[in-house]
């Protein structure tokens, strides 16, 4: 094999679109929440399976009871001179009568700009999440789907861009005993896309996509 080191190289920002779900359940009106997330797709790092060390910071604000706005900055990207930010909102689309199950959506817009050659990139994403407090009032269990959309028809060297829809499936648990919250999320990223013939050995149950793990910690300000 050519190199494991090369695999080590592209990891930090490649798939920097990857992040945990930003906000699954809308906040209460007036509530502000600050979250830090760490994690990413799992890959083989010189024989060890580790998550990509991607990180981001998110601030969310309960604008109305069923509508929260959120914005994020990808801090790992920033370390590498890429300003990657995203803005979106979360609203509940459906709640069961006993409120044991609900469905929310979170569309977001991503903006990226590097300080090296000032290349700009925009892409939207859209998350759908089923969530429930069935495990307890301070435990949020959720499962859903993330979707990233590539709007460009071209990739490098004016070649045709084959990937326009990149889905991911995820499930997570948020524990919020008080003002602080703790979250773990597992993700199956890009299950429709081959993970062969590339410089990174992603961990995946198949020859497609990558499994990811994310940890978050946050605090609410009411």
């Amino acid at each position: 094999m050519l190199t494991k080191i090369l695999i080590n190289t592209l990891i930090l920002l490649i798939l920097n679109a990857c992040a945990a779900s930003r906000l699954v359940e809308p906040l209460h009106q007036g509530e502000v929440q600050l979250n830090a997330t760490f994690g990413g797709p799992l890959f083989d790092y010189d024989g060890y399976i580790i998550p990509m060390p991607l990180s981001s910071v998110t601030i969310a604000h309960g604008w109305r009871d069923n509508l929260s706005l959120h914005g994020s900055v990808h801090t790992t990207s920033a370390i590498f001179g890429v300003f990657h930010t995203e803005f979106g909102f979360t609203t509940t689309l459906y709640k069961s009568k006993n409120r044991d199950l609900a469905l929310s959506m979170s569309p977001s817009a991503h903006f990226m700009l590097d300080k090296w050659e000032h290349h700009f990139k925009f892409y939207p994403s859209f998350d759908l999440n089923f969530f429930s407090h069935v495990l307890g009032p301070n435990k949020l269990l959720y499962a859903g789907m993330s979707n990233w959309f590539e709007l460009s028809n071209e990739r490098a060297h004016a070649e045709k861009q084959p990937n326009h829809w990149i889905p991911a499936f995820h499930s997570g648990l948020t524990y919020q005993p008080d003002l602080w919250n703790y979250n773990i999320e597992l993700k199956y990223i890009a299950p429709l896309h081959s993970n062969k013939d590339i410089v990174i050995d992603y961990l995946s149950p198949t020859d497609r996509g990558a499994l990811g793990v994310y940890l978050s910690i946050g605090r609410s300000f009411k």
Partner: peptide, 18 residues
């Protein structure tokens, strides 16, 4: 840049990485 985009799936500029 192709190496980056192959791994990233979306067409991010190579300068984001290297």
């Amino acid at each position: 840049e192709v190496m980056v985009q192959d791994a990233a799936l979306i067409a991010i500029p190579g300068t984001y990485v290297t």
